[in-house]
Design a protein around this nucleic acid. Structure first.
Length: 1163
RNA sequence: AGUCCCGUAGCUCAGCUGGUUAGAGCGCUACACUGAUAAUGUAGAGGUCCGCGGUUCAAGUCCGCGCGGGACUACCA
């Protein structure tokens, strides 16, 4: 016995000690170890074996469905203000990709957030159903081309196929939408092909028509002569449309007409002065009607000889481009020495003048086949003229170029036109791509060789029209230079032949009339990112063109305009009712047989069969055009409600949208069309906030495509990682508007790092809360009564609420997610839980324990709420589980809760900063321990920290105990600032000194580097120090510098920022023994686990006597017993069933443990 | 070709109105912990901040010119 009983030198609880004595040899019961309490049977907080995010996704999805949570989230807020979201309609004609997950997540986040904030957020889904992609997919499926339409397949049949194809993948889309948790009303979507939808579009068009903003005009558009149809810019941008072709390019000479205006260009009476201009399409030269110059460009006259005719000529071109046409080698030659046929042609540059001086000078028509009606063949200014290519003078053929057409209209230059058999004006090239007969030399010739049939081209003697024109110009002394030129040129995707730019009739919306308003209202829109609004979108508005609405196709919204054959009378129909009225008139007039059926389809071909009458009684036929599908989607704010025919009130409550989000590629698509229609017809923006998200690329930064096989399948991803991790990853990895390099490893990381940590924190909470029976029933203990660490995490939490709320309000989901992640990982888990672990599993169900539970519980609930917009499934699960204790109906769903309100009173920045000090000090000391190879289980006696001022001392004192227990150190010594234990260092505060002393900075910094201890002391005590630099006096005060403590000779010292820590690494016998005791406890704990003892089982402990150990055990007896739940500890020479434990590198112990046999079990 | 975005550690990203030791996570290496345990913690290595010029006492940050990646818009003759 003498060996067994020992006094505890550490002053452990007297009570325990006495009980130990009593325990020797006899039974005792420890009732005041809380952990000994039996686990309660009732599990209040669900505990899980592992984190299965896909499973949680499925489970919560079912839960939402069964309990109609989405509906409730809207119903719940009835009577509150509305937050309006518009869903940009995707096309269900193609499969959804992973990028749709991003887009839909962003949309969802803000709608959920606003719901939490108490708004009514209606979300109507929609589908874009018209347009080319649909037509293409149908044609592919049926194996037909557009030429078959009306031949092998009727328009009616064709459109029926389109209608069927349009929602081909709707189910897949709906499925994905649900699985990623995008809450949008899928049951009642708007469909752009629906009659009611079209009716609203008609109404909108009629408003434009009546305001005179819808007009029929001539414009130069991409046109495929081979296919006989105009093409949209979209069609021009299909892959492979731009191809490199080699064309004959001509620099033509335009003879300057002599007049007062042009006189300054002539040096002598017989001088032949010519403008030279370049073209890659010589066939447009007969249609030349003007030359364009840049007003600010410098031009020059060069005297030389024509290389083909050897005639003397003075040419005018941009000064910068002289080297392009005149060889440096010829610069020394004189004009007089030139002989016909010389390879090097001499030249002589003359005077320089600005483009503006050339304006309005006339020249002789280059190829005078057809005369214009009006004031043509003069020099005009065009801002598109550059000196990068050509001659700086641009040949302008108004009918074959859109820039050309515009500049000619602006300058009143007439086009070169002829009349066809019916007396209609037409250009010199017909719709098949051939010259008209008036161009005598080339009549009926195709302007491009590609339009000829193959036989013709095979003929070796065949020369293209361009070549023939070049030859003619050479002969006529009108060609300055001819060469082959390779450039990229658009081709028709259907026929593979080059397109022409050709004047066609089209219907336009006069957007230019509203340009200023469009720009002005755009400035009120909050663009994310801002640069898209000012840059891409803003620039687009600055260069606004009228909107060409016409499309000559089949599956789309028909233009509701009927016109008499001469086009003089037109009617725009604004509703079905109006159409019926007009039909009634037509029936009366005898042009229609009967009324339209109730279910009359507004699509082609049916509308085309409707013939109306004008007020004068003339027949009116519908203009054959369909409208641009972009108008369909831009009309959705109105058309989704069939406004104004129905739902006026709903519309008014939901216009304009508070928020929309779509890919950045929609900037000039949907964003633009929404804006135009709203501004032009409602004098309002269509949306107040817009997030334009970037692309989703593969992990190597390449665009995803099915062809490359690098496209991620969203369903696979969701199955593997679940919706929450996927959403979290996408949102926190990069800002929505930056491109996302999609990498599955990133999702896995989000799962592990964020969800794993949060799950563990919850699991930790649940484990002990269930043991202790905590169910958050107690009154909330006032925060100021709670311990430092609780107040700290709550301060952090409330700061977090503020931050996250403002991030969401600013449409910055990435910052919100990252802030939450940082809180959960760094603060909640890594510091709060880690430091508080003992509070949860040791001791009675005390006030302190309740505080710990309340604090952690509150943090978890709040995190669930803050994160729920981004990770709606997991957070709902977490929230519901946490609310279980509150009984039925308390926590149905996090999405029905209110967004947490920050308690600013709980925020204590000082507390946050002193906890930071504690964390920094810990980090430093751990680093020092590491360097010395002293593990944390080995207690050390002392650290020293210099305190620069009283405030810092107070801060430090408040966290002293935390630091000591975290670091296993016995004492913290405060070192006075005046102490010379630490060697002080000084460095300049650049931010303060810089502005004051500017260029002296370098020298001041140098001087400070040389400061001695006394100098620093002088500055510290007198708060002023005078330096002399290059004769200049510089007075420093303490604010100008940063003084920190450096090394302590003989101690281990570490610095971080302004904090310095010195560590005493002396290990006394006492410390060493305590270290051994800790190691021993640790190994015994492991043994308990190995033997599958319950956490609460008490044990009987035997340790084989060992000289190296006995003293350590005796001196830490209570500690060992308490930690291992040993009711007795016996040191004996002989023990049975022992286990050998490796205590540390040097020591081993033989230990035997058995479960205590309780009284009740005995009997 | 124009407009816009992006370029910081092996990877993904922070870095506010310019301020002197450029950060985080992952990964890697080593270690610790072993009653949060299919968890957790700590430390270490790792940077020409795409390049070149400029402004400034001071540039990852501002300006100019390039280079590379991407998007959009394009008949620039």
């Amino acid at each position: 016995m003498a060996d067994k009983v020992i006094s505890d030198s550490h002053g452990h609880n007297e009570d325990v000690l006495s009980r130990f004595h009593a325990a020797c040899g006899e039974e005792i019961h420890f009732t005041n170890f809380a952990a000994v309490r039996k686990r309660r049977i009732v599990t209040k907080y669900p505990e899980y074996k592992k984190l299965d995010l896909p499973e949680i996704g499925d489970e919560i999805l079912r839960y939402w469905d069964e309990n109609k949570i989405f509906d409730s989230s809207i119903e719940n807020r009835k009577g509150s203000p509305h937050f309006t979201f518009y869903e940009g309609p995707p096309s269900a004609n193609g499969m959804p990709g992973i990028h749709h997950v991003t887009a839909r997540t962003i949309k969802d986040i803000f709608c959920r957030f606003k719901t939490l904030k108490g708004f009514v957020v209606n979300r109507k889904a929609g589908w874009d159903t018209h347009g080319l992609p649909v037509e293409l997919s149908v044609e592919k499926e049926l194996g037909i081309t557009k030429e078959d339409i009306g031949k092998t397949i009727s328009i009616a049949e064709y459109n029926e196929e389109c209608r069927k194809a349009v929602l081909k993948y709707k189910d897949v889309w709906d499925d994905l939408t649900r699985k990623i948790g995008f809450w949008v009303n899928l049951d009642d979507p708007y469909l752009t092909y629906d009659n009611k939808y079209i009716e609203s579009i008609w109404w909108l068009l009629k408003q434009l028509f009546e305001k005179g903003l819808l007009y029929k005009g001539y414009s130069v558009q991409p046109y495929s002569p081979a296919a006989g149809t105009g093409l949209s810019s979209h069609e021009l941008n299909l892959p492979g449309c731009y191809k490199n072709v080699t064309d004959t390019s001509v620099v033509a000479q335009f003879k300057v007409s002599r007049s007062e205006k042009s006189e300054f260009l002539f040096d002598s009476d017989d001088e032949d002065v010519r403008f030279i201009a370049w073209t890659t399409t010589p066939w447009t030269l007969p249609s030349n009607c003007a030359l364009a110059i840049g007003k600010k460009i410098d031009y020059i006259k060069v005297k030389t000889y024509n290389q083909y005719t050897f005639a003397s000529v003075s040419v005018i071109l941009a000064k910068e481009l002289v080297p392009k046409y005149f060889s440096e080698k010829a610069s020394h030659l004189s004009l007089q020495d030139y002989k016909e046929g010389d390879k090097l042609i001499p030249f002589e540059t003359g005077e320089i003048f600005k483009g503006s001086e050339l304006e309005s000078i006339y020249y002789e028509q280059l190829m005078p086949y057809v005369q214009p009606k009006g004031d043509a063949f003069r020099v005009i200014a065009g801002d598109f003229v550059t000196t990068e290519e050509g001659t700086g003078i641009v040949h302008t053929a108004s009918v074959f170029g859109s820039d050309d057409y515009k500049v000619c209209v602006q300058n009143n230059v007439p086009s070169i036109l002829v009349q066809d058999e019916e007396g209609n004006e037409m250009p010199l090239v017909d719709k098949r791509g051939r010259f008209v007969k008036e161009v005598t030399d080339f009549a009926e010739r195709f302007v491009r060789a590609e339009y000829e049939n193959d036989e013709t081209i095979k003929d070796e003697s065949y020369k293209s029209t361009d070549v023939l024109i070049a030859i003619k110009l050479k002969e006529d002394n009108k060609a300055f230079h001819v060469e082959k030129y390779e450039h990229s040129y658009p081709h028709c995707w259907r026929t593979d032949k080059p397109i022409l730019y050709y004047p066609l009739d089209s219907w336009f919306i006069k957007t230019t009339a509203a340009k200023d308003k469009l720009i002005e209202l755009n400035k009120t829109i909050n663009w994310k990112p801002e640069s898209t609004g000012t840059g891409r979108f803003g620039n687009w508005l600055e260069n606004l063109q009228d909107w060409n609405l016409s499309r000559s196709r089949f599956w789309g919204t028909p233009l509701p305009i009927w016109a008499t054959e001469d086009g003089k009378d037109r009617k725009c129909i604004g509703s079905i009712a109006e159409l019926n009225e007009e039909v009634a008139k037509a029936i009366k007039a005898g042009v229609m047989a009967k009324e339209l059926p109730e279910d009359f389809d507004l699509h082609r071909p049916y509308v085309d069969d409707v013939v109306l009458v004008s007020d004068k009684g003339e027949k009116m036929y519908r203009e054959k055009d369909l409208i641009d599908v972009w108008f369909d989607s831009g009309a959705m704010p109105y058309a989704q409600w069939n406004y104004p025919m129905s739902n006026k009130e709903i519309f008014e409550k939901n216009f304009p949208a508070d928020f929309i989000a779509e890919g950045v590629d929609q900037t000039r698509g949907w964003f633009f069309t929404l804006h135009v229609i709203a501004v032009m017809l409602f004098d309002s923006v269509a949306f107040k906030n817009v997030v334009s998200n970037g692309l989703v690329l593969d992990k190597n930064g390449n665009k995803m495509s099915k062809r490359l096989g690098n496209a991620a399948d969203p369903f696979e991803i969701l199955k593997l990682y679940g919706p929450d991790a996927t959403r979290w990853y996408m949102i926190t990895n990069s800002q929505p508007w930056d491109n996302l390099k999609f990498d599955e490893a990133g999702i896995e990381e989000a799962r592990r790092k964020f969800f794993g940590t949060l799950y563990n924190t919850y699991a930790f909470f649940a484990l002990y809360a269930n043991i202790d029976g905590f169910n958050n029933q107690e009154n909330q203990i006032p925060i100021d009564k709670r311990p430092e660490i609780d107040r700290w995490i709550l301060s952090r939490l409330n700061s977090l609420i503020q931050d996250v709320e403002s991030y969401y309000e600013d449409y910055e989901p990435t910052k919100a997610g990252r802030a939450i992640q940082n809180f959960v990982d760094n603060h909640l888990s890594n510091w709060y839980v880690r430091l508080c672990r003992r509070r949860f599993w040791k001791g009675e169900y005390s006030e302190d324990k309740i505080e710990a539970y309340q604090t952690l519980y509150h943090c978890l609930v709040t995190v669930a709420q803050l994160s729920s917009p981004i990770a709606p499934f997991f957070m709902d699960k977490l929230y519901i589980d946490l609310m279980k204790s509150k009984g039925k109906g308390a926590g149905i769903s996090v999405h029905l809760s209110d967004f947490p309100v920050a308690d600013s009173g709980a925020i204590d920045k000082e507390l946050e900063s002193r906890m930071q000090i504690a964390q920094d000090v810990s980090s430093m000391v751990l680093s020092l321990r590491k360097k010395e190879g002293i593990k944390v289980r080995q207690p050390l006696s002392k650290i020293m920290i210099p305190v620069v001022n009283e405030a810092f001392r107070k801060q430090l004192e408040a966290v002293e105990s935390l630091i000591l227990s975290e670091l296993n150190i016995k004492e913290l010594e405060y070192i006075d600032a005046s102490s010379d234990i630490f060697v002080k260092t000084i460095k300049p505060n650049f931010k303060v000194l810089g502005p004051k002393h500017g260029r002296l900075m370098k020298e001041i910094a140098q001087k400070l580097l040389e400061f001695k201890k006394e100098d620093i002391e002088t500055l510290e005590t007198e708060n002023t120090y005078e330096l002399s630099i290059g004769g200049e006096k510089v007075v420093l005060t303490l604010d100008d510098v940063e003084i920190s403590s450096g090394d302590v000779p003989g101690w281990l010292v570490s610095n971080l920022g302004s904090i310095t820590v010195a560590l005493d690494v002396n290990i006394t016998t006492e410390l060493r023994e305590e270290g051994i005791a800790r190691d021993l406890v640790n190994k015994i704990q492991n043994l308990r686990k190995e033997k599958n003892f319950e956490v609460t089982d008490k044990i009987v402990l035997q340790i084989a006597s060992d000289e190296k150990l006995n003293s350590a055990i005796k001196n830490n007896l209570n500690y060992i017993c308490a930690e291992t739940l040993a009711v007795s500890l016996e040191i004996s020479e002989q023990i049975h069933n022992e286990t050998q434990l490796e205590i540390n590198e040097e020591l081993t112990a033989l230990v035997a443990i058995t479960k205590e046999v309780t009284q009740s079990e005995k009997t």
